[in-house]
């Protein structure tokens, strides 16, 4: 009985999730259904928004009840969360990580910094619009968004996946020249960060 409110919340969230009926055929529908019910989120945090992610995934907000759980490496992950401002140095790593993930992959951007620069609007070292450099499926605004809004963002993303609308990875492949041009404009000709297995040994470290 004491869990009643909790179950009600779960029902509200999932009812919203199951309301879509638009799909081309049953195979597509099934595929999208499996994709939306199982989301592996890369354990990767940039900026201050990373601090809101642990409560989202642990006991208090428990994203696992919606099929959302963490994945340790980009190879296993479906979603990368860009959680806050991206400096150029971070952007390199984000792009590299994003390109290591296997299709289909989705991007969830948190915080006003990824939307329009946020409080770092006049910083020489921070990008202002994330969607210029990599495709974004879903923005969650706020500074920082609370775990509730992150969950809402996940539900919205799941809904788009279920309807087959979330296709940013195709967008990235089709418009690769556009994204690459924008990346090179801020990062220089060499976009990928230069490190290998023993990067911490030479060059005085870091």
């Amino acid at each position: 009985m004491e869990h009643n409110g909790f179950i009600q919340e779960q029902k509200t969230l999932e009812g919203d999730l199951n309301s879509d009926t638009s799909h081309k055929n049953s195979v597509d529908f099934l595929m999208n259904w499996f994709r939306k019910r199982s989301i592996f989120v890369l354990a990767y945090g940039t900026g201050c928004g990373a601090i809101e992610m642990p409560p989202t995934f642990t006991s208090r907000y428990d994203a696992e009840r919606l099929g959302i759980r963490g994945a340790a490496t980009p190879r296993q992950a479906d979603v990368i969360i860009v959680s806050g401002y991206c400096s150029y140095k971070t952007l390199r790593r984000i792009i590299r990580t994003y390109e290591q993930m296997s299709n289909p992959k989705y991007v969830l951007a948190l915080g006003s910094c990824t939307v329009n620069g946020g409080m770092y609007w006049d910083s020489y070292n921070t990008i202002k619009k994330l969607e210029d450099y990599m495709p974004v499926d879903m923005y969650v605004n706020g500074c920082m968004p609370r775990p509730e809004s992150i969950l809402e963002g996940f539900i919205a993303l799941q809904k788009e996946i279920g309807e087959g609308k979330a296709s940013s990875w195709q967008k990235y492949e089709e418009n690769y020249e556009f994204y690459r041009k924008n990346q090179e404009a801020v990062l220089g000709k060499k976009v990928e960060p230069s490190y290998d297995a023993d990067w911490y040994l030479y060059d005085g470290g870091l």
Binding site: S38, D62, R65, G67
Partner: peptide, 8 residues
């Protein structure tokens, strides 16, 4: 926690 469904 509430936990995922059994077929997760």
């Amino acid at each position: 926690r509430f936990g995922p469904p059994v077929w997760q």
